[in-house]
Design a protein around this nucleic acid. Sequence first.
DNA 1: TTGTAGGCGTTATCAG
DNA 2: CTGATAACGCCTACAA
Lengths: 338, 338
Amino acid sequence: MIKKPTIKDIANIVGVSTTTISRYLNGKFENMSEETKSRINEVIIELRYEPSSIARSLKTNKSGMIGLIVSDVMKPFFSMLSKGVSDACTEEGFQLMIANSDNDKFNERKHLKTMKEYNFEGIIINHTGMNLDFLLDLKEEGLKLVLVNQSIDNRSIDSVTTSNREITQIAIKALFEKGYEDIYFVDEPMDNSSVRNEIFMGFRLGHQSYSGDLEAKHVIFKADSLESTFKEICCNYKKRRTAVFCVSGSILLQTLSYFKSRNIRIPEDLGILGFDDLDWTDAIVNGISVIKQPIYKVGREAAKLLIERINGERQANEAVHLILKNTYIERESTQLIK
Amino acid sequence: MIKKPTIKDIANIVGVSTTTISRYLNGKFENMSEETKSRINEVIIELRYEPSSIARSLKTNKSGMIGLIVSDVMKPFFSMLSKGVSDACTEEGFQLMIANSDNDKFNERKHLKTMKEYNFEGIIINHTGMNLDFLLDLKEEGLKLVLVNQSIDNRSIDSVTTSNREITQIAIKALFEKGYEDIYFVDEPMDNSSVRNEIFMGFRLGHQSYSGDLEAKHVIFKADSLESTFKEICCNYKKRRTAVFCVSGSILLQTLSYFKSRNIRIPEDLGILGFDDLDWTDAIVNGISVIKQPIYKVGREAAKLLIERINGERQANEAVHLILKNTYIERESTQLIK
DNA sequence: TTGTAGGCGTTATCAG
DNA sequence: CTGATAACGCCTACAA
């Protein structure tokens, strides 16, 4: 393993100083003889010289890299988000590095620190909520930060989110108007992210603006057995026109699968509404109605916002909060038939 | 924005030399008075000092980071893979950075270069195939590299793959034995990755070992219209017991969706076999039979292998090629009924 | 038990 | 048009 050539080696061979090489590398040709210029070029190619980004970064405090920290790489949500961020970054000439905090406070912290120390130009993050103070400190220290799909209480950090509450309200109201009499909210247990809260608020408002207040029985958290989870619904659907709002892809799948196994037909016996437009929701069972977040766009916008910050194209004093519109996609799973 | 304290600042305040601080930071307490030790500690906390990884890395050529370069962040395959790699890395105390080449030669190259320059300890990659020479060069220069789900012709680079050919052959044979008379291979157009080739080989072998040679009509590439794509199959299934092998999740979805729209029932009229066990394949339409790759495990093993390399726990002279076993999961979509 | 001095590979400020 | 020289922040022989 041969030692990599440095700027010094080039300088020695060409017979000029390192300064000149550095100038060459940074495209400062204004005052440089064609002669030396081409000699340098030759030698660089000959030795396959490549500047050390790390040394450069130590000096300049720049890196050309942007970080994205997600809380769970496994979720389709983050795949789409990453794609959006990634596309925007390459378009603008930045390099994206994605890290997975895996919902762990310590990992998250470590990634933030490392990225900061390696002079990442900015970080887009969907945080775990366990490092709020740390995030604020970093922001304070001048790190460029954009939150995705969440914002922070004091709203001091830029964010890009979607209008979950409004759209949920609209969708629920639409279901009521269509004739559904009972709409159930089915969620994972213990999921109290801010997104989930927003959706729930929308759900409640949808109820209020149509059928009066929400009853406790309308909110279901997945239990150990699907049997007991869906007991109430199974009893209800024969008596009243019933729909189920599944707030995660995984819940939606389990719900579909359970009702299928019980020979409960959709939409004849039961209406189904999902959240997030996963690829299979359109293709199967005649289509599942869903509320769709523009996830890819959230990623893009977050990256664009961050890059504007990096380039100093934004007023530094005030945080920006972008809110993107969701859409309600009606498919067959909520075509009330009976 | 206040300047970050450096080792020098700490040294000045404590009244010792930077050497001592450096020793402290690296846990070399052997010869250090409790006194100075605790003073240093105090000042570090007081100033919130944090060592600069970048300066450290410039000196030590280490970084504690591992890179993962995927060709398309959007694919569920890479989500699972990333999770596997990520888990193994955190367990072993490495930090993972994921980059998306987006099937672009230039991006891929850039990520490789950057990671190398930032002293990444090693890189796991699913390459685009467009930078073979470059990869070999990097390997030559001492960069630790592990390929996932692919290997390279001269087999000089470590790899972790799965036994796609064998399992496909087994599955296809099983379908024939069950009584299917025609099995079709449906693929995206222009997908000639090595994985796809392996699967196709398995498909062909499956045919050969049972029903004789493959006929041209049995291999279908998705056309612009689903109508024309599936024409042959639609004609055939009434006459002979027919099954369709969909080699990608997206093809599988489209296939299911198309046959559903034509009221062709699965498995009564047509058998369906998929590749890759996506979450919905189990939950819907009574379950789709699939060939399942242990993707998460591929990620884990790749990371473990790489880390062994990094730690020098492997013979340096010979490339390692891990081949993990796939499984054939039979569900209802291939229960021959008629 | 601690310090000095040189170096890691660049860039930047002068001064020629 | 080009070069010394001093940083950037840390590590590490070698000294003391």
